[in-house]
Each structure stands twice: as C-alpha cells, then as structure tokens.
Design a protein around this nucleic acid. Structure first.
Length: 511
RNA sequence: GGCGGAGUAGCUCAGUUGGUUAGAGCAAACGGCUCAUACCCGUUGUGUCGACAGUUCGAAUCUGUCCUCCGCUACCA
C-alpha cells in the first residue's frame, strides 16, 4: 500500500488559533482525507511549538509554571481542530520527552559530522521589538537619516550591537548541494513564485546559522553544554521526524520522507533551506515537497492583533457551519496566492455554490425520485439513452481523474471548480430532459434513466467533496442510501434502494 | 538600492508558442420553466486588455521607456 505523510507546521502556542492556522490545518486535512479515500496509508501530523523566550515570558506574566501554561494553550488548539473536523494521526509537542530526545540526537549527529562549531554571533538588535537587523536593512531604512547611529527600521528607536557566544551550523557548506537538489527536483518547492525567491536567496550566499541561545532557558539544552538551549526553529523543524520516533521507530521507517510539508508562505525559507540542510547533514532523505500557501486579509485589511480584526475560525464555524467554512477557504482563492476574507464573499459562496447549485440539485433530484418512483432508485435498461446522458456520464467519469490531478498539485480551488462544473451540467441536464414532461408523457424508461443518472452523479459528487466537507458528504451519501458504496466510478450499484430525503443541506442565507 | 511578480468587464480572475467578433464565475437586467431552497435554465451588456512609443500584414500576447501596487533581500515565531 502506498504511504502518504503530510504535515502542517507546529504552531507557536503564544497565540490562540486564528484563521491562518485553521487554513493550513484544513488544507492539509483535506489532502490527507483525499489520500485516505484513494487507499493511501496516510499519516497526517500537526502539533505545537512550545519553546522560546516569548512562551516563558507569557507564562511568567500569567504567574503560572511554563509547562502548565503550554498545556493550557495546547488544549485550545486541540479543541479547535476537533471542532473543525481535523482528522490528524499525530499531534507532536516540542515539550514532549520523545521530541527532546530526537532533537539532542540530531544535534549530536551534526556535531559528529563536523557541521556545528562554537563561535560568536554579532548583530544589531532592537530590544523593544526583539528583532535583529542586518547592515543593509539599517542603511536603507528611511528612518536612519543620521548615518552614524542606526535606529530600528520598524520603531525608530536605536538598535544595539550585540555579541553572544553561540553554536553555529554550517549552512554555507551545503549551499551547492542544496542548489543541485532544487535543480534536480523542480517540484520540491511550490508555488514557483516562492521558489524563485528562495533560489535568489540561496544564490546570494548562505551564512552559517546561529542555532543556540543563552538568554533564556525554556528550550532543549545542548548536550554537554547546558548553558545553551537550542534555537527554537532548529528545535521546531525536527518535529517532523521526532513525531515518527526517528531514527529507528516503526513510523519513521514507514512514513519518512514526508510527501508534503504544508505551511504559510512566511516560513518557507526555514523549510526549504534550513531543514533540507539539516537533513543533508545527518544523512537523511529530504521531504518530497514543500508548499507555501498565501495569506488572508480580512475585509481588505491585513489581519493583526492590534487592529483587532483577527478572525476566529471557531466562531465562524458556529455561525455558518464547519463545512461551509472549510469549503470557502479552499474554494475562494487558489492555494498559494493571497486572498481576502469577507462576510459578503463567504455568504455569496454559500448561497451560490452550496445552496443554489449543490443543495438544490440534491433536493430537487430526491424530490423527483420520490414523486415519480416513490423514492425507489430506478434501474434503467439503458441509462445512456441520448447524447445529453452520455455527456453527463462521461463528464462525471472524466472529472474523477481531473480532480485527482488537481488534488495532487494541491490545487484545491481548481479541484472544487471541476466538481462544480459537473453540478452545473447536472442542473442543466434536468432542465433539458425535463423529467416532469417525461412523466406526463409516460416515457418511463427515459425518466428512469434521467433520475438514475442524477442520483449516481450526486453519489460521485458526495464522495469527491467529502474531503472538503466531511459531514455534507456523509449526509448526501446517507440520503442516497449509498453510505457503503464508495466506488469512485459510475455504476448501477444504487439501483433498487430507497432514498431518504432530508431537509435542504444549505438553507439560503439572507444578506 | 538589488532581484522578482502583477496591473484584462461592476467584483474575482483565465487568456497556451503574437492571428479571425478578448473569455469564465459572481453581481445586474430581461425571458422561460415548475422537480426544487424567490431555486434552476436561457439571453444580454459596457472593456482605449496600466500609459506612451516601436517591431509586424497582424499584439492583451514581443521590445523599450514610464506610472501604480506587491513580494523577497537571514536568525520573534
């Protein structure tokens, strides 16, 4: 059986889950569910990054023990994913013993390889912003009018030169090897626009990376030198293998390398430069693909805590339903580019796509099945009795393959629009075949074929949308009495069963 | 400053290697239908294809200049 290992980043617990986290997690969940549907042995990993200075400070501010603080935050994420119907196989936390063990092992291996050395880090630091700056940035910043004294490009306050003992990781040593990997694996990093950015970053020359800190203690200590804790990113990236019990656990042997790491565009560089080089250093295969998706703005504005326009996915799911939210996020914008979230566009999608197109198609078809056949699914002699029927059947068969291509390319929006194309054609098919006329004229054979075709198209549609909208998919299948008929091919298995029409799936929303 | 991307209908976008009347979805208007959630089906429109100049028989598509917006340019995550 083919395996499929997919991950989200581990989220920093210094924040409650917002729509950005939910987006990544839902997208990965959709792909994981789809692959399971296709018979893959899937491992879907998500988790939390719980180390670092900010976490420590947040706990202190709250007056609780750090571990207790992160345990509480972790509950919030678990609850959120549960609500959003995320079906993950693993949940890794960087404070877990198994993770810390692998991090240290990783570090030792790199040390043995001669890829880690002790040195001094020098840089410009803005204390209030907690950010480091390079000379180039400082020089170009319009705020640095007085060239003699650098100020922070963000806040305008003076920056301080800092010097610190640290362990360095020899990124520079692997520069050429990494470039070669990009050349030989054109699909390693997607979308392409991001790939170009990363390539130009690598080509400008990689500097060795400082991978330890002495300014705080909430982290994984460096083996043999516990004044230093391991830099949080370094710690965090290792989650992808520690969760599988690297380096000799069963899961590690079965699932690594990852088939795809899914993430927001802001952390691509860590995954497409640092992580691959870490793996090269310890001699482990690289992930097959790294995908950086876009960001959401909200009502046209950048989402930020200070603006207070952060969208809470749970509240949204409670208002509109989990499935419509999942659908909207993946349908509205191509995965990989930025998009705008607004109530108006969510409602528009809900009404146009879910209520009018899909929900109404199911409802009207079931009504006709009840009305003309007492709900019993017909078994037509020749279901492809005319060109329209042949086209409908052919399109739905073709769509199964087309959707597969889109899914494998993480083109979620494209996959959905292909599915909705079939829904549209099915609605047109009803109009043109006019079952009500066939019924009046007593053309039973044709009527049987039309209703059967529609039900079968709906069954296939239900399966194809189920990774996106798990509850809706199940509900449709149960109304079609097809909960146990999961074949993704057009057939006659439905015939003879009695449909169980329910309430409309998506009652229209008033604006 | 350097590198890269984008600017096409009211909105969101598609437009392969330059070739006949520039497309889709949504929104709007009108018509049809009645199985259906005021739903569905059909018809309809406006676009100086960012600006200017050039190459060409012919350019949204190639070249140049300019304007606007955005991304990346290393250590908070």
């Amino acid at each position: 059986m083919n395996k499929f290992y997919i991950t989200t980043p581990i989220y920093y617990v210094n924040d409650i889950p917002h729509i950005g986290h939910a987006y990544t997690t839902i997208a990965a969940d959709v792909l994981a569910r789809y692959k399971r549907l296709k018979g893959f042995d899937v491992y879907y990993l998500t988790g939390l990054d719980e180390h670092g200075q900010k976490i420590m400070e947040a706990a202190q501010a709250k007056g609780v023990e750090v571990q207790k603080h992160v345990d509480e935050m972790a509950e919030g994420f678990k609850k959120a994913w549960n609500k959003l119907e995320i079906k993950n196989d693993g949940f890794i936390r960087t404070t877990s013993e198994k993770h810390k063990k692998v991090v240290q092992e990783f570090f030792k291996k790199m040390m043995e390889k001669g890829d880690v050395y002790k040195g001094q880090y020098e840089g410009w630091y803005c204390i209030p912003c907690e950010s480091y700056w390079t000379e180039i940035h400082l020089k170009d910043s319009p705020k640095n009018k007085d060239k003699k004294k650098y100020v922070c490009p963000d806040c305008g306050r003076p920056v301080k030169k800092v010097k610190e003992d640290t362990y360095f990781f020899k990124l520079s040593k692997y520069q050429d090897q990494l470039l070669k990997h990009f050349e030989e694996n054109p699909d390693f990093l997607q979308p392409v626009s991001r790939k170009n950015e990363v390539l130009s970053f690598i080509k400008q020359g990689l500097k060795d990376l400082s991978i330890s800190r002495t300014s705080f203690t909430w982290g994984v200590p460096i083996p043999g030198d516990d004044k230093h804790v391991i830099y949080v990113w370094f710690d965090a990236l290792i989650n992808y293998v520690s969760a599988l019990d690297a380096f000799d656990g069963k899961n590690y042997k079965k699932y690594w390398p990852a088939d795809v790491h899914v993430m927001g565009k802001e952390i691509i560089r860590f995954h497409a430069v640092i992580w691959p080089i870490m793996l090269m250093s310890v001699g482990v295969p690289l992930p097959k693909k790294v995908f950086g998706h876009g960001w959401w703005t909200v009502e046209g504005k950048k989402m930020s805590k200070t603006t207070g326009n952060v969208v809470d996915p749970i509240a949204l799911a409670e208002e509109f339903g989990v499935d419509p939210v999942r659908y909207f996020l993946l349908r509205e914008v191509p995965f990989g580019v930025d998009g705008d979230f607004s109530r108006a566009s969510l409602i528009a999608r809900f009404n146009a796509d879910l209520a009018n197109d899909l929900g109404n198609l199911l409802h009207r078809t079931l009504t006709m099945c009840e009305k003309y056949f007492k709900g019993e699914i017909p078994n037509p002699k020749n279901h492809k009795f005319d060109d329209l029927s042949k086209e409908l059947v052919a399109l739905s068969e073709k769509t199964i393959d087309e959707v597969d291509k889109s899914m494998n390319a993480l083109a979620f929006s494209e996959a959905l629009s292909k599915i909705w194309k079939v829904i549209g054609v099915a609605n047109t098919y009803i109009e043109k075949e006019a079952p009500w006329k066939l019924a009046k004229a007593g053309e039973t054979e044709k009527l049987e074929a039309v209703i059967f075709n529609l039900l079968e198209v709906l069954r296939i549609t239900a399966i194809l949308i189920s990774p996106y909208m798990p509850s809706t998919g199940e509900k449709m299948l149960s109304e079609l009495k097809a909960s146990d008929i999961r074949e993704l091919s057009f057939g006659k298995k439905l015939a003879g069963k009695k449909v169980a029409k329910g309430q409309p799936l998506f009652p229209r929303l008033e604006k």
